[in-house]
Nucleic acid binder design. Structure first.
Lengths: 159, 159
DNA sequence: CTCATTTGATTGACATGTCAATTATGTATG
DNA sequence: CATACATAATTGACATGTCAATCAAATGAG
């Protein structure tokens, strides 16, 4: 029953496009700042942040992937590039010979420390400063709603 | 003078990360639907949409790039791939021999027509349906504020 | 007209992301 | 133990994105 609901209105569609385009523009702007301030990509930063917060500055590859919401293959490729630059190192895992442990290398640690304050400043300037405190709170609720909806088993066809 | 303002609070930072991650997750979900429904990528869709709305289904390459907010080099590469698939064609420009005109090819038109309803449905299911009408309106204001702030000459250092 | 500069567009090199194998190891079951 | 299956991670092929040349045609100053 419940026939297919209507398609988005023109207004809804405009909000959707603005939403996606703005997020994309913000991502690009933050990424450019990070790059020029510290020669790190957003991906590098995410990996280094997770490792910095990890017990002993090391983490199982799969756990790291889950932590930053990446596919394992994507992480593998990225770690390969980061390893070549000396930012991280990979070690065999003692408890599971299939596994790998990713370890924060000294160069990675110092790059991350140099990047963090400029990065946080960029987030403040480009995101927080653009909004009133009420809007920041509203944004939090908004993304929570979107995320909750996304997490549901996408009901295609049987609604 | 106005000394450097404080860095984002933990709450603000969490909202920022959720915002970016959610936008990214949504983009991926919409992209997956588009791909499986129509074998078009979001990039393909953006190009085809712009051409469909254009006078005579054709557009100068630079105008197209501006319309969809892409760098020209990115567009060049993408058009090359789309041309190989027969979705668009490139013709020389009569008024400016340097220029190129991008033309919607029949295959591109039919692919676009097949994609648009499923795509709009996906936008409704994944975005609009997740929010109350009030939240959609709030989202519109939010991105407008972010966008307006982004458009300002990024005041680095001299604030 | 001529030469330097700007503009429209493409190209090549490379970073990043996705998907479908592949490899090797762990686990469970008869 | 032996076979089947699941799991951890990597790999290769390819699509996409960015950046810095490159190239040719238009423009503009002398």
């Amino acid at each position: 029953m419940a026939r297919t609901r209507t398609l988005p209105t023109a207004d809804e569609l405009r909000v959707w496009r603005d939403y996606i385009e703005t997020a994309e523009a913000l991502r690009a702007a933050i990424s450019a700042r990070l790059q020029s301030d510290s020669a790190l990509s957003p991906g590098d930063y995410a990996v280094l942040l997770a490792l910095s917060e990890a017990e002993g500055h090391r983490m199982r590859s799969s756990d790291l992937a889950a932590r930053i919401h990446w596919e394992r293959s994507r992480l593998s490729h990225h770690l390969g590039r980061m390893e070549k630059r000396g930012l991280i190192a990979r070690e065999e895992c003692v408890t599971d010979s299939r596994g790998a442990e990713v370890v924060l290398a000294p160069a990675g640690e110092s790059a991350f420390h140099g990047a963090t304050v400029p990065h946080l400043r960029a987030v403040r300037e480009l995101f927080v400063d653009a909004l009133t405190p009420q809007q920041v709170a509203a944004a939090g609720e908004l993304v929570a709603a979107l995320r909750a909806h996304l997490a549901q088993p996408a009901d295609r066809g049987t609604e």
